[in-house]
Structure formats: C-alpha cells, structure tokens
Design a protein around this nucleic acid. Structure first.
Lengths: 145, 145
DNA sequence: TGCGATTGCATCGCGCACGATTTAATCTGG
DNA sequence: CCAGATTAAATCGTGCGCGATGCAATCGCA
C-alpha cells in the first residue's frame, strides 16, 4: 500500500481551502455592500427568481432552517428582503426582495468576473472545473442517501 | 453581454457546496472518533510531522490563532495533543501528539478512501482534480497579496 | 370528521472562521 | 544596554453550519 495521503494532496482539503480562498477574495467586494458570502448566495437565488418559499432556498443551498432562519432575519433587518407567511400554507415563509435588495444586483454583477480575473484562467476552463466539481458534489450527496 | 450567472453555474458555489458535501460524508466516520473535520485536518498535519509549532499549522491550514487557539485547547482537553511553549522562543506554542492522538491515525487512514468510493471516480481522476483546485486556490491566494 | 403523522419553521447549543484588539516575548538600531 | 518595532498567541464579538428539539399548520386515513 502507499503512504498515507498528505494534507496537501487531499481532495477534501483542496476543496476546503479553495472555498475559503474564494470567500476571502469576495470579501472586500461584499463588505462594500454590507453582505456576507452566504447572504450573497441567498440574494443570487432571489435575483434569479423573486418571491420564493424558504423551502426552495433551503434545497438550493443545502442549508436547513436552523441556519437560514437567523440569516434571513438579519437580511430582513438590513432591509434586503421581507419574510411573510404564505396565505395558502401558513407553514411556509415566502421571501421577497425589497427595492434595496433588488438594486444590489447591479453592483454585485461584477463579482464573479472579478474572481475570474484573479484566477488567471480562461472562462471555459473555469466552466469545465465548475461542472466537474458540481458533478462530484451531486455524486457525494447521492451516496449520503 | 451574457445573462448573469445562475448560482448553479458559479464556481464559488460549486466549491462551497462540494466542500460541505465532503464534510458531510466524513462526518459519520469522524463522529465515531469524536473528531470534527477541522480537528481531523490538524491531526493529519501532526501525523505527517509531530511536534510542530502552531505557526506552521497556521500557515498550512490558513487559519489564524483566533481559530486555532480555542480549537487546539479543545483537542488538548480531549487528550489528543499537548500544547507547550517553546523553550527557545517563549512566544511560540509547540503541539505534540499524545499516544491517544497518534493512535487515531490507524483508524482514520481509511477515511480518504471512503470518500473516493463515494465519489464513484478513479483515483487518477481525483488526483487531477485535486491538483487543479489546489493550483486555483494558490493563484487566488497570490492575487490577494 | 377527527386524530395521529408529517411538514415547515423556529430555537438552542456548540464549534468553527475571521476581523479587531491585547499581551508577552523577541528583535533591532543607536 | 535600552527603547521602540516586530512577532506569536490569546481574547472578544459576530456570523455561519448543523445536530437536537419544539411547535403550529397541514395532511391522511379510518
């Protein structure tokens, strides 16, 4: 058998440290808008489609209510979105962007492009890598039943 | 220009969600040893080389003392390692594995292999992906000066 | 129709991450 | 040799992630 894998060659650590590096790269840009990185992800989903139930965000981000509820309350407090119970099903909470939250879209549109510039890689290369990592993630999710 | 990138095609989210998925896959195995994922990373470094100064772990993991100090104290409390000031330079703290911490290496050696099995990918494929992601991470770190 | 099961969210506790600040040890120039 | 600068940890506060639990609304089935 081979020697145990060093940390520097572990896929798990590559993902862990790369994810942190990306968030660090985003940080100055997000700070300028008063957003955290997970909040930016939530807004990205709402920019794609406004007025979504929390359940949908939960599925897309793979985050449960114990994470989302306090986060969405902070975003509501910051005037980015509103939280209201669905009239048809009072169990659900629907999220809607405020004009403030919707307006941030213009300022945030450049952020992924900035990351691309920092990465020193071509767009097709980054797209291929994204597809590979996403496929790996879905494979792992499926294996966790 | 093209439409704004949807979350599902953002590299940042691919890394973010894949990293979480990997940690979720590790969780049952680490729980059985009473470890968290970042604690497992620390032990992995100490298994590679015992008796390291905290500064070295900090550089390898890209985590500062505000994260490492409380974490290492918990690991010390769990009997996994010892923390002692370096006699040559009292500013530094040196970490040494206890027999308990060193012994976990045997039980933890299989963990990366388990991830590989779940991923449904060949070892060379995973290695290539690791190299690519690591290179991207280092590029981003360099760009953050 | 009513009652147990399920669903969607909220709450609590703990352990990271990380910015900002503090403290103590060491280094450096004069 | 000494005072200021630098360095390595520690401390504090905030915001995720996530397991465990609680609760109210809805569903399903006799």
């Amino acid at each position: 058998m081979s020697d145990p894998l060093p940390l520097s060659r572990m896929l798990c650590f590559a993902l862990y440290s790369a994810s942190h590096a990306v968030q660090a790269g985003y940080k100055p840009l997000l700070d300028a808008m008063g957003l955290t990185y997970p909040q930016f992800l939530v807004l990205t989903l709402l920019w794609e489609q406004d007025d979504q139930p929390m359940l949908r965000l939960s599925a897309a981000l793979q985050l449960d209510s114990n994470t989302l509820t306090p986060m969405l309350k902070r975003m509501e407090g910051a005037g980015l979105l509103t939280r209201r119970r669905d009239a048809e099903d009072e169990r659900q909470v629907r999220l809607k962007l405020t004009p403030t939250g919707a307006a941030l879209r213009d300022r945030a549109g450049d952020i992924p492009a900035c990351l691309q510039a920092q990465s020193g890689r071509s767009l097709p290369e980054l797209e291929r890598l994204t597809v590979e990592i996403t496929a790996l993630r879905d494979r792992l999710r499926a294996a966790q039943t």
